[in-house]
Amino acid sequence: MKYKATYIVAGFCLLIVLVQGAIVQQKPMPVQLIFPAHFPPPVYDFKHNPLTRQGIALGRFMFYDFRLSKDSTVSCGFCHQQFAAFGHFDHALAHGVAGGQGIRSVPTLFNLIWQKEFMWDGGVNHLDIQPLTPLTDRNEMASDLPDLLTKMRSDTQYRRMFKEAYGSDSITSERMFKAFSQFVATMISANAKYDSVMLHKADFTAEEAAGYKIYQKKCAACHKEPLFTDFSYRSNGLPYLEALNDVGRMKITGSTDDNLRFKVPSLRNVLKSAPYMHDGRFFDIFQVFDFYDHGIKVTATTDPLVKDGLSLNAQEKRQLYFFLNTLTDDSFIKNEGLSEILIN
């Protein structure tokens, strides 16, 4: 009898410990990203969106969830394919639900926490708000945001995942967007052969080294190391296509000086992310070399750096190709933490 009370009390204590343990387990677990030593500090402010394991998992789940599109056919990962450095392999122009097609190519996704503005024209001013465009564009996922939120709120799995990530199962657009950022923030590509060479862990071959010299002389002013872009908007002399009528950054600023300017894309993983240019008109990197060699059409806004062409001979093109190959980051392209997950 005396022991019975002890057992009851002990059992109760055990129960409390177990319940608390369960609660502790459910708490979002902070994640600290390791930034590459040879990169500048990221511009994304993690103070307003601290990374957690559950937040990243939620972002990843949403990234690959085709139900986020209007007719449940297209996910973010549908166009942003990991093996193409999260660009769209073999697709010149982005396309989405119901056969819709846009006027620009799918940008690659990596190192976005070093980037301040997004889209080819820099129209989007914050990483967290970036997913709004593809989610709602009628040529992409074509979702109505209030409808989408209703859909997600009625899904028990999403309620559970939001609770795990944020402590309560309230599904708001702000939380949704921030979870996307959490996942996208983990897309860091800084482990190509080039990086190993810079960190003195490997050496370029003779051809790669020659290509690096050409790159430094002819490409690096815009495609600046170590991110391989200076994030500026430039008109590179790509002939204007009437059918697409894309004026580039002028659409955002309303300034004629910005006509035909587009964001300088990163050269990292470039050999994995064909086709090239904002409208994907070149399917092969050698076409890009040829364009810079003799294809530039000078307009009022064409960048002085490329106005006279970059003159690349056959040997230089070959060397440049070998250098660009050292920017392919296999550990990123095959990173299992970023890979597609099946949505039931």
């Binding site: 307003h48 129209g123 989007v124 914050h126 709004l132 465009t133 709602t136 657009s173 702000e174 967007f177």
Partner: peptide, 24 residues
Amino acid sequence: KNVSGPQSGALAVESGMFWSWNSG
């Protein structure tokens, strides 16, 4: 608030009072 990413409450972007293509 125009440059601080998504907000909640009255400023939640699902109101449609936010430009997706040219943030603001």
